[in-house]
Write a protein that binds this DNA or RNA. Structure first.
Lengths: 217, 217
DNA sequence: GTCTATAACCGGATAGAC
DNA sequence: GTCTATCCGGTTATAGAC
C-alpha cells in the first residue's frame, strides 16, 4: 500500500487517460457508480462493490485506500468525461450554449446509472458533512459561472436582449436539467428527457433573443 | 406491541389529525425527517433517531414496528400537510395553478429539513427496490395528472393557447421546482428559490396564455 | 410506554501471508 | 495484487422485565 496512490492513480498529464494495467481500477469505478446510485454514499458497501468486480473488500482497498477516496475518484473520473467534454470550449453564442446543454442531456440519456448516482449524491451533498459537499458546491457554482458568462457575452454581442437576467436564466436551465433527470430516473420509459429539455431550451432562448434575430440551425 | 399499529397510528376519520397522547409519535416523525434528510433511508439509524427524541431504539420500535413503517409514516404525514393543502382544491385557471405552485415553493422555503429529505428520498427512490419507490412514482404521476388536467381545462376555457402542450408544461414546472429545491438545499443563502420559481411561472404562463388576455393580479 | 439484553448480521479499516 | 483474518463497532428486530 506504500506504492498505491489511493484515490488518484497514475495518469498522463495531457488528457487524464489512464495507463494500461488500470483496467481493474476502471472496473471498480464503474461498479462503484452503480452502488452509489442505488445506495448513496453512506449505505454503499465496499464488500458488495468488490464482489461485483470479482475481488474481496481487502483487494479493493489496495486500489482505493478508503471509501471516501473511492467516492472522490468516481466523481473526478466522471468530470474528466463530462465537464471538459461539454464545457471545455467557450460557447460562441447563447444559442450554442443551449445546444451544448441539450447535447449533454442527450448524452446523459444513455447512462442511467451515472444520472442516478448524481441525483442521489447531489441530494445527499446538501449536508455540509457529506464527503461530496465541497465537490457539488464547487461544481454548481462553476457551471453557473460559466453559463452566466456565456449569456452575458451574448448580451454584449447583441444576440440577447439587454434586460436578460443572465444568472437567473442559467440557474433555471440547471434546475430544469436536474429536475428532468430526477423524473427520468424514476421513470426512464415514460419521460423523454431530451425532447423535454430541447423544448425548454428553444422556448427560453427565443424569449430572451432580440426580436427578429434568426436562430442558427 | 400487540396494541400498536406501527406505521399508521390512530387518527380521526375526518382530517388525519392525531389524538392527544401521540406527541411522542410526532416528535419521532420530526426527528426522522432530519435523519432521512441527512442520511437517506438505508444509512439512517433507528437508534440515532431515538436518541434525538430521548428514548432508546427499543422504545422507538414500540411506536413504529419497523424502519420501513417509520418511513411510510413520515411520507404520509408530510402528504397530509402538503398535497391536500395545495392540491386539494381544483385550480379555477392556469394562472391560479401556477400561483399555487409558487405558494408551495414559498411554503417549502420555510422547511429546509423537509426539502432535503424529499430531495434525497426522491433520488434514492428511482431504484425499484427502494421502500419509497411506489410512493414517489405514484405521487409524481398524480401531481402530473392533476396539473395536466388543470391546464387542459384552461385550454378549453380559452385562457390558454390551443396548441399548448399541457403534459410537457406540467412536467417542466415540476422539474423546475425539484431542480430549484436541489440548488436551494445545497446553498440556502445563495439561492432565492421563490423568486426564481415565480419568474419561471410568470414567464411560462405568459408564453402559453392567449395573446391580449390579461393575467389576474 | 420504555427499558435492557440479546440474536444475528454487516460496516470500514488494518495486518500480514502468499 | 489479492486473499484471509481480525478488530471494533454499528445495524434491525425480538423478548421480556418493569
Amino acid at each position: 500500500m506504500s506504492t498505491s496512490r489511493g484515490g488518484n492513480g497514475r495518469r498522463t498529464a495531457a488528457r487524464g487517460t489512464y495507463a494500461v494495467g488500470d483496467e481493474r481500477r476502471l472496473r471498480i469505478l464503474d461498479a462503484a457508480v452503480e452502488h452509489f446510485a442505488q445506495w448513496g454514499f453512506h449505505a454503499s458497501s465496499l464488500a458488495r462493490i468488490a464482489k461485483d468486480v470479482g475481488i474481496t473488500q481487502g483487494g479493493l482497498l489496495h486500489h482505493f485506500r478508503s471509501k471516501e477516496s473511492l467516492l472522490v475518484a468516481v466523481l473526478e473520473h466522471s468530470d474528466e468525461q463530462d465537464v471538459e467534454r461539454f464545457f471545455g470550449t467557450e460557447p460562441a453564442s447563447a444559442a450554442e450554449c443551449f445546444t451544448t446543454l441539450t447535447r449533454l442531456a442527450s448524452h446523459n440519456a444513455t447512462r442511467l446509472g451515472r444520472v442516478k448516482m448524481f441525483n442521489v449524491l447531489l441530494a445527499e451533498a446538501s449536508n455540509p458533512g457529506h464527503p461530496a459537499h465541497a465537490y457539488f458546491t464547487r461544481r454548481n457554482s462553476e457551471v453557473l459561472r460559466r453559463m452566466t458568462g456565456s449569456l452575458r457575452r451574448a448580451v454584449d454581442s447583441g444576440e440577447l436582449k439587454p434586460d436578460a437576467d443572465c444568472p437567473a436564466v442559467a440557474r433555471e436551465a440547471i434546475a430544469v436539467m436536474d429536475g428532468l433527470q430526477l423524473q427520468w430516473a424514476l421513470d426512464p420509459e415514460g419521460v423523454d428527457m431530451v425532447a423535454q429539455f430541447r423544448a425548454y431550451a428553444d422556448r427560453t432562448l427565443r424569449a430572451i433573443t432580440v426580436t427578429g434575430r434568426g436562430l442558427p440551425a
